[in-house]
Simulated assay, not measured.
Amino acid sequence: MPHAYLAWWALAGVDGAVAEAPVNWLRLASARSPGLAGAAAPIAPPAPDKPRTLDAFLSWLATDSAQPERRWPGQPILPTGPARAPLMVITDMPDLADAGAGTLFADRAGVLFDAMLRAIGLSRDAIALASLFTVRPPGGMVEASDLATVADRMRLHVHLAAPHRLLLLGDRTIRALLPTGSVPDTSGLHPFNHDGGIVSAVATFHPRLLLTQPAAKIECWHALQSLIEEHHP
């Protein structure tokens, strides 16, 4: 107990005739004495500004070291196509054959993909083409946190690219981007929310699945018809 009294009088300044600064005894000790409360919590750095143009976005995607794909080997396959394209096609990631070719939808899947485009009156040079992941991860497996990151990134991409319609290919793409996470169906147009509003999207099977399950081509065709009707009312 004597030690407590001595500490009180020391804090009161009895050991000195004049204090350097007044002391507010009604304040909490942690507020009076920062040294007793420990170091202040570090201030988080401000989030970097998002790209505001499509060109700036593509440059950021190609050079930013914080992109999740930087952890994996392989050369990124970047998005292609013009802004305000009549259709933007989004897939999940490059296939094994794509990495060697340096382009999405190479090999047999690419032949089928081109046939799908011809069926709706389009070709590759008229569309915008992108994948959620620009590099295929080892084993084709991704973590949920990475999928959420690239889904947010794609919403920004769609906003800046401003396509007239979207075509989402594959179950993983659809689950990441559509609000209901629905599997491919023939229900026509789905609303896709991006950073600047809403654009209509058609969801269907990936060509890689159609190669192994030809019966799914019928459902795929029904989905693509929604795009044909949109372009030719």
Rank of each mutant, 00 (worst) to 15 (best):
M1E: 14
M1P: 11
H3I: 01
Y5H: 08
L6H: 12
A7H: 03
G13N: 01
D15N: 11
A19C: 03
E20K: 11
E20N: 11
P22E: 06
W25L: 15
W25S: 12
W25M: 15
L26F: 11
R27S: 10
L28M: 06
A29H: 13
S30Y: 01
A31W: 12
P34W: 03
P34Y: 04
A39E: 07
I43N: 07
A47K: 08
P48Y: 02
P48D: 09
D49A: 14
P51S: 02
R52D: 00
R52T: 09
R52G: 03
T53Y: 08
T53A: 00
D55H: 08
F57W: 13
L58V: 06
L58H: 10
W60V: 02
L61W: 04
A62I: 07
T63I: 10
D64T: 10
D64M: 01
S65D: 15
Q67T: 09
P68M: 03
P68G: 01
P68Q: 08
E69V: 00
R70T: 02
R70E: 05
R71G: 08
G74M: 06
Q75R: 11
P76S: 06
P76L: 01
P76W: 00
P76A: 10
L78K: 08
P79Q: 04
G81S: 06
M88I: 08
M93E: 13
P94V: 05
D95M: 11
L96R: 15
L96Y: 14
A97F: 14
D98V: 06
A99P: 12
A99T: 14
A101S: 11
G102F: 09
G102I: 07
T103D: 15
T103Q: 15
T103L: 13
A106T: 04
R108C: 12
R108P: 12
A109Q: 14
G110S: 09
G110R: 08
G110W: 05
L112D: 09
L112A: 05
A115P: 11
L117Q: 07
L117T: 00
G121Y: 05
G121F: 00
L122A: 07
R124K: 02
R124M: 02
D125C: 06
L129I: 01
A130M: 02
S131D: 06
S131W: 05
F133Q: 09
T134W: 10
T134N: 13
V135E: 02
V135F: 02
P137E: 04
P137I: 04
P138I: 13
M141C: 15
D146V: 00
L147C: 14
A151E: 12
D152F: 11
D152E: 14
R153Q: 12
R153C: 00
M154P: 07
L160S: 03
A162P: 08
H164M: 13
L166R: 03
L167H: 11
L167A: 11
L168V: 05
G170S: 08
T173R: 05
I174E: 08
R175E: 06
A176M: 03
G181A: 03
D185S: 11
P191N: 02
F192N: 00
F192D: 07
N193T: 14
D195Y: 09
I198Y: 10
A203Y: 04
T204A: 00
T204H: 05
F205Q: 10
H206D: 04
P207I: 01
P207Y: 06
R208C: 13
L211M: 05
Q213V: 03
Q213K: 13
P214W: 11
A216P: 13
K217N: 05
I218K: 10
W221G: 12
S226P: 04
L227W: 02
H231G: 15
